[in-house]
Amino acid sequence: MANAVKKKPVGKAVTFGLLSTILYYFLITKQDLYMPYFSKGEIYSLLIIGTAFIFSYVHGNFTDYFWKVLGIEPKKKREGR
């Protein structure tokens, strides 16, 4: 019975959720700090690409675990079904 019910990744969801909140907190509150660099263009464009990758990793993991915790999971593959 214990094996049949999969444990929900609550800890991971909370960790990535917190990290994601921190990222978005800085995005909203520290605009004056980073915007001058992020809008400079040329080689500074790497900052934009890098930021997008960081957000996609952190927030991507959070959203993945979020739905898992809520029990919204993909269909299990079964033989003959």
Binding site: S39, I48, A52, F55, H59, F66, I72
Partner: peptide, 30 residues
């Protein structure tokens, strides 16, 4: 990269859309 090179990307707008869209993309994929 092409747009950002000329300073046209507003990272705030992009990341805010991403905030909602990653919830959506996971769900759509499921």
């Amino acid at each position: 990269f092409k747009y950002a090179w000329h300073g046209f990307v507003d990272i705030r707008l992009a990341m805010l859309i991403l905030l909602g869209s990653l919830f959506g993309v996971q769900l759509g994929a499921i």
